[in-house]
Computed example of a mutant assay.
Amino acid sequence: MSKMTHVVTGPKTVLSYLNVNEPKAAPGGKPKYSASLIISKDDTDTLDKIHKAIEAAYEEGEGKLKGNGRTVPPLAAIKTPLRDGDLERPDDPAYQNAFFLNANNPRKPGVVDAHCNPITDTSELYSGIIGRVSINFYAFSVNGNRGIACSLNNIQKLEDGTPLGSQISAAEDFAAFKAADGADDFLN
């Protein structure tokens, strides 16, 4: 891992589609740990670091990106991981005024709290937590597809956030059936 391709995001990164408890595999793929990192467009420091790391990964991976061709395709012509949430997910409020990127790794990421103590309680790790993420960018060329990808290294959870997704709590699901003072409790 090159220092030029390594980035630690700012402390307000929101983690979505968080999969760090058990690896999951796409059909026909290898199991990996993964997360979608949502970075506010206001976090220009992190975004600048990401742009520089993508450029460094491009320069370091020119041989791989060239493939069987005579020239290396320009960076603007290949797939890169940083995407605009306003353009690609306009109906999802979590992605408004933000960029996002997907990071994965077959190796389990280290996960710590604000004091760098390991988090072992899996219920503490859900889509919506907020913190810093250590990532690394690298060039790839697989089956004619070329680009820059992002590896998930480690996570520092700094605070709880609003859980993302469509799941509602059990209390909300069954509130209409709540027994008034036990009057409907047939076991008593």
Rank of each mutant, 00 (worst) to 15 (best):
2 S>D: 09
5 T>W: 04
7 V>A: 09
8 V>M: 01
10 G>T: 01
11 P>N: 10
12 K>L: 14
13 T>Q: 01
13 T>A: 15
18 L>A: 02
18 L>R: 01
18 L>M: 02
19 N>G: 12
21 N>L: 09
25 A>C: 01
25 A>G: 01
26 A>H: 03
26 A>S: 11
27 P>H: 12
28 G>Q: 03
28 G>V: 00
30 K>T: 13
32 K>Y: 05
41 K>Q: 15
43 D>P: 03
45 D>P: 07
45 D>N: 14
46 T>S: 15
49 K>Q: 14
49 K>F: 12
49 K>C: 14
49 K>S: 13
51 H>L: 06
57 A>I: 06
60 E>Q: 15
60 E>C: 03
61 G>I: 01
65 L>R: 08
68 N>E: 14
68 N>Q: 13
70 R>S: 14
72 V>P: 09
72 V>W: 15
74 P>L: 12
75 L>K: 07
77 A>Y: 06
77 A>K: 15
78 I>V: 14
79 K>A: 10
85 G>D: 12
86 D>G: 00
86 D>R: 02
88 E>Q: 11
88 E>N: 07
89 R>W: 10
89 R>C: 02
90 P>S: 14
93 P>D: 13
93 P>H: 04
95 Y>A: 09
97 N>D: 03
98 A>G: 01
98 A>R: 03
100 F>T: 06
103 A>T: 02
104 N>W: 11
105 N>D: 12
106 P>N: 11
111 V>Y: 09
113 D>E: 10
115 H>I: 07
116 C>K: 15
116 C>M: 12
117 N>I: 09
118 P>R: 13
125 L>F: 14
126 Y>R: 09
127 S>K: 07
128 G>P: 11
129 I>H: 07
129 I>T: 04
133 V>S: 04
134 S>P: 00
137 F>Y: 05
137 F>M: 06
138 Y>M: 01
139 A>E: 00
139 A>F: 00
140 F>T: 00
140 F>D: 00
140 F>P: 00
142 V>T: 07
143 N>I: 01
143 N>K: 13
143 N>V: 05
143 N>F: 07
144 G>L: 12
147 G>S: 01
147 G>L: 02
147 G>I: 05
148 I>Q: 01
148 I>C: 00
149 A>P: 00
150 C>F: 07
156 Q>R: 09
158 L>F: 10
158 L>I: 15
159 E>M: 11
159 E>W: 05
160 D>M: 05
161 G>F: 04
161 G>K: 06
165 G>S: 02
168 I>K: 08
170 A>T: 07
170 A>Q: 08
171 A>M: 08
172 E>H: 08
172 E>S: 11
173 D>K: 03
173 D>Y: 08
174 F>K: 03
175 A>R: 01
176 A>K: 11
176 A>W: 04
178 K>M: 12
179 A>Q: 06
181 D>L: 08
187 L>A: 11
